[in-house]
Simulated assay, not measured.
Amino acid sequence: MTIGQVLDLLRPDFPGVTIPKIRFLEDKGLIKPERTAAGYRKFSSDDVDRLRYVLRMQRDHYLPLRVIGEQLDAIDRGLEPPEPEAVTPTVPVVALGEDGLPSPEAFTRNDGLRLSRRELLKVAEVDEELLVALEQYGLLAPVTGTTHYDTDALLVARTARDLAAYGVQPRHLRAFRTAADREIGLVEQVIAPVRASRDAGARQRAEETQGQVAALSVRLHATLVRAGLRRS
């Protein structure tokens, strides 16, 4: 199979997997696809099974690549790897709509996740240099008044890591910060009258309105980008 065919097989179970991710796992020695005389990768069914194993251990058990590599080595030597301990997911699944875009609930959730800087680096699989750059350009920061990072910081770090595989650096992402701030301002403008109400249900209505307007804003943004790319 080609790397594109492998991607098509994996994406139903692992929507976030990308070609750079597969190449990264190959660079780490976790898979070793054959090469044609012209240098193209040719993946076997065993290679796909190994990729599924690696991605599942990362997603469901947050195992570092070093540990996953040790387990694959054990499998290669005919041994049974230890059963991963049951874990409570630390990164909640963002509530998505049928089209894959965040639902209103995704903008009002508060999972309470708190990661130290070392934990963020480990779970997001980014280095200190990238994290410093993301902070420098205002793309993520510790939770106000603490030294800990939340789920949003983790998702930003992971997304920036994946974009970096395509040559997109943190300095290129400042436009996203600017656009996000403008959308936040629009949402705040809409919910301000609701929040200012004095009745008992005002706070809940403000939260619901915030989620609805934010979700619609992201939907419009994504649709405009998609439409623009189709015209290009």
Rank of each mutant, 00 (worst) to 15 (best):
V168M: 07
R226F: 13
R114V: 13
R226T: 11
I191P: 00
D13A: 12
F107A: 00
R77H: 13
P193D: 03
P92Y: 10
V94W: 03
V48D: 07
T146W: 05
T146R: 03
R195N: 07
I31A: 07
R226P: 07
G138L: 00
I68K: 02
T88C: 10
G201L: 14
L163T: 01
I191R: 00
R11A: 08
E125R: 13
L79Q: 12
V194I: 07
E208H: 07
R174V: 13
E26K: 07
D60E: 14
D162H: 02
Y149M: 04
Q136K: 14
E183K: 01
A37P: 05
A227P: 10
R52K: 10
R174P: 00
R226Y: 12
L121M: 14
G228N: 10
I31W: 09
L25E: 04
P142D: 02
V48W: 09
D8S: 14
H221S: 08
F43S: 03
A196T: 04
V17F: 03
K32R: 14
D49I: 11
A37N: 12
L220K: 08
P12M: 04
L120K: 03
Y40N: 12
E207I: 02
E188G: 03
P102E: 01
D76V: 06
S45A: 09
Y53S: 12
G29C: 08
I31R: 00
H221N: 14
L120A: 00
G228F: 07
V190S: 01
T18S: 04
Q212H: 05
T36P: 11
V93E: 14
L9Q: 11
Q169L: 12
P89M: 13
G167I: 11
L173Q: 00
Y53M: 14
R23T: 09
A180V: 00
A164T: 06
S44L: 06
S232N: 15
L63E: 05
D127Q: 11
Q169R: 12
S116F: 08
L186E: 04
I3Y: 06
L139E: 01
G39A: 06
